[in-house]
Nucleic acid binder design. Structure first.
Lengths: 242, 242
DNA sequence: CTTGACAAGTGTACTGCGTACACCTACTGT
DNA sequence: ACAGTAGGTGTACGCAGTACACTTGTCAAG
């Protein structure tokens, strides 16, 4: 009987099982609470057992990111570059939103795993296939930056707003009048962004709208540059120096 | 005599001294090596002494960020909004580049200290003063995102390139041919970006150029939208739902 | 000059982390 | 039947942040 129990759980660990469990755990408790010990416990195993499948925690994080990247849809076929890029970014965004920790990990990772490189490569491919010069593609990639992954640095994070909502009404009023005095512009902009909804910062705005607004702004800019055959005029030559 | 020594070092700690030392230490050894213990040691004091001046490490980091923000120049006067914004961002960029750890801390911080709010407020003020609608200003702020602080997520970080440079020539060749096979687009773009210089990724490109390229692309986009009186057409009403 | 209060600095100790290293164990191919 | 090995275990180390009780230095009031 114990044999059976053991037989049931004796599905041996594997790199994939470890990564999957890590992703799930991070989804549940947040990346900051994901420790090797906690993960091991979740898998019913002693912490050091994990090290037979991942070299260390950094590699674990890399693997988790790779798993998320695998969720991104491949480029659609036979659409113009703009639509292809747009859809791909939005697909990446959906994947990253399913795993909210992924943004931070991706940002903090200096690493370039094969999955990351593969995504970037195929991303550049979309522009090149659209007739962009290698030169322009390069700058475009830099300009997109992390927006290629479907996210932007949030202006305010939820907590600030959460705190506000949790405050006593009079404290809210006090804070509001203090803000009106010290940060009049923020207040103006924030309240305009949230007529019907009582919140002041952040929550009043539609992140998805903001993201697409900025993405389209950039894509339009790229289109314009491409249309006018833009080239970075580098200082002619350069062999002269040194 | 020991008295004198003590008298000399008896310049008492203060929040400002702690923050200044923390900034300096982070500049020297990197943010990941900045621990309360290490900082205390640097100040010739026992770790717990710091807690008389900062509540905890998070507050220390917040304070450090605030100190960097204080280094950003105020907006220039009597220039158009575009030039004003541009110069301000580039000033922020200079400050952040003087303290390379600041980018990460700013990114990871969910907090909104008065200094952060103040900067944002004055930033919005530049657009509003330029005649932007509150609405457009709002979206523009989101679109800028962390570029407002003068940085972008780097595509590749130095390490990858550093490793490559440190490799044996034949290993380099092997890696190159492997990359040509698996990431042909990356290779194309990267090599084009670094004709004269031997490196393959990252180092070949001029970060400052890339940053300004993207910044100007966005500012031009904003200008265009502003010129045509852009408004986000929100779904009329909304009170109907709930 | 004493005193006593309060701010600044100290010492010790706790918990949790990542992970090195030596060990055991159960399955595999010969 | 047995040796080799991959996978799991147990113990232990150093480093982190910080709670809590303590001493010390300084200065105002009696």
């Amino acid at each position: 009987m114990t044999q059976q129990v053991e037989a049931t759980r004796r599905v041996p660990l594997s790199r994939d099982r470890v990564l999957a469990a890590a992703v799930e755990l991070a989804d549940e408790v947040g990346i900051e609470s994901l420790s090797m010990r906690r993960l091991a416990q979740e898998l019913g195993v002693v912490p050091m057992a994990l090290y037979k499948h991942v070299a260390n925690k950094d590699e674990l994080l890399d693997g988790m990111v790779d798993a998320i990247i695998a969720e991104i849809d491949p480029p659609v076929r036979d659409a113009g570059w703009k639509r292809t890029v747009r859809l791909r970014v939005l697909s990446a965004r959906r994947a990253l939103l399913r795993h909210r920790w992924a943004r931070r990990v991706l940002e903090s990772r200096t690493s370039t795993t094969p999955a990351v490189l593969g995504y970037m490569d195929s991303f550049m491919g979309m522009f090149l296939a659209g007739g962009f010069s290698v030169d322009l593609t390069h700058h475009v990639m830099h300009a997109l930056g992390s927006r290629m992954w479907g996210f932007t640095q949030e202006l305010f994070d939820d907590p600030a707003n959460g705190n506000f909502a949790d405050m006593a009404p009079d404290a809210q009023a006090a804070m509001l009048s203090e803000m009106a005095e010290r940060y009049p512009n923020i207040l103006k902009v924030a309240t305009a962004a949230s007529h019907d909804d009582g919140s002041v910062v952040g929550a009043g705005c539609d992140d998805q709208f903001e993201f697409e607004f900025a993405l389209d702004l950039m894509l339009d800019g790229f289109e314009r540059l491409h249309g006018q055959g833009w080239t970075s005029e580098k200082p002619a030559g350069g062999a002269a120096e040194e």
